[in-house]
Nucleic acid binder design. Structure first.
Lengths: 256, 256
DNA sequence: ATAGCCTATGACCTAAGGTTAGAGTCAAGC
DNA sequence: GCTTGACTCTAACCTTAGGTCATAGGCTAT
């Protein structure tokens, strides 16, 4: 009858001695017996069990759950596997989203290394158009415009990239909500995110009223100039209208 | 100038008060000031910073790394993002493999709920063929065959499913190594796994010599009857030959 | 007997907080 | 002025799955 010491078993199974200690203490894998000097001794059955444990551990099961799988006769292994699979899939989906977000951020970071700053506020517009919007804005809001331009200069490049990444994510969600009511909680929640995002570009100066007006004004701009709401080079006037209405509603109901 | 208490800031950003305590202690987000009673007070800048922190946290960055991204001027954010993306991709790939493994195990578990046991040893064969192999085995190995059949009965259903899952994984690896030398370390490592796997079906009785012979005999069987090495319903005689040779080499060089 | 391994237990450490516990703070209502 | 309830503070323990000592004892060969 083969007997293994901790070290031998550990080597056979490719784990550390510490691991066996832990499994012993928590009752997941008890040695077959002990010597007089309390040395742990394992047999073939224990090796078998250890390899079962490692099978499930590789599948990212927690040790407690493995113990159940192996010991609880009433435990439905099939159920557990299916359930676990759902969890792993969710993680996988999440990772996919994260990777997309990283890609976007990287892209934004690349762009910003080229295009430096106050131009950001008028991004995507021709120089003349930008100039004319700026003049118009100054007429309307005066001082605040300069402050906004200054606030923007204080943002770091990664910060701008992050904010832009968030913008495209918000835009995606809002676009998918285009058939919902502009007053719905879902839409207004995203608009709130959008507002906070824009506010970080603009800075937090000005009274609540001024901010609300400026935000609604931006919404109007989206309708007047479709380039603001282009997605992948295509314009979406119906989305621009939806967005603008939702922003106006938000400015009037939640910012005053 | 807006000032936020811990609770207010926590609510605004959707985190717990504890989280803010932790960020404070580790220096990731210090309050702007403290009241006389040591209450933390945060300003707009801190809210902004917190949201930056959450941006990276959602991307599964560790807090330490986030601190670097935000504070270390010489830290290359772009590099960090790219590197992080590679990590996430690796995790994603691993998850994909795990899910496949779970699927296999679920399939095996389903099958075993139907087909109950000693038949497993002759799986995939017609009843007559199975009978004839069994008779042949008994002539060759005598007693051992009965012991194997008994050993098999002691395995639980999930155990059998796990072992079969492992078998298909080993088979996949070996199949991808078909152009390598049968004596190569890579091939022999997988053969060792295969042997250990088979041994769990057979049990551990018999002398080392008997076990080695029986294992080599199984390899011969793979060549004689292509149904043993079918993958997705297709037979692969060249793989059967490769496998059989590798098993023979293993039996002769590592089992004696 | 001593050197060189092996083993045992116990304690501390990791990440990112959750969860009490005990004590102090603040504003409101009586 | 006092109590009540909500808020805040720090400190300490708990979580996973072990890694990494520290200290003490065991085993075998020279």
């Amino acid at each position: 009858m083969q007997k293994y010491s901790v070290k031998q078993l550990a080597k056979l199974a490719g784990v550390s001695v510490r691991t066996l200690h832990v499994y012993d203490k928590m009752g997941l894998l008890k040695p077959l017996s002990r010597t007089e000097a309390k040395y742990r001794l394992y047999g073939e059955q224990e090796l078998l069990r250890l390899q079962q444990i490692l099978f499930y551990k590789e599948l990212d099961f927690q040790l407690q759950e493995i113990a159940q799988i192996l010991d609880d006769k009433d435990f439905d292994v099939m159920d557990s596997l299916k359930n676990h699979k759902v969890n792993l899939r969710a993680k996988q989906d999440r990772l996919a989203t994260l990777i997309l977000t990283i890609d976007k951020t990287i892209e934004n970071l690349k762009k910003d290394t080229v295009m430096s700053n106050p131009a950001e506020l008028y991004e995507g517009l021709s120089a003349e158009k930008a100039q004319s919007y700026r003049t118009e804005a100054i007429e309307k809001y005066g001082e605040e415009v300069y402050k906004s331009e200054k606030a923007l200069l204080k943002l770091t490049k990664p910060q701008i990239a992050e904010l832009k990444t968030e913008q495209t994510e918000i835009a995606q969600k809002l676009f998918s909500l285009i058939h919902k009511s502009i007053e719905s909680e879902q839409v207004q929640t995203q608009i709130a995110r959008h507002y906070e995002n824009i506010r970080k570009f603009w800075g937090t100066h000005g009274s609540a009223d001024t901010q609300a007006e400026a935000y609604a004004g931006l919404g109007q701009l989206y309708v007047d100039d479709e380039r603001f709401t282009m997605i992948d080079g295509k314009s979406h006037p119906e989305y621009a209208l939806f967005l603008s209405k939702a922003m106006k509603y938000f400015a009037e109901n939640r910012l005053k």
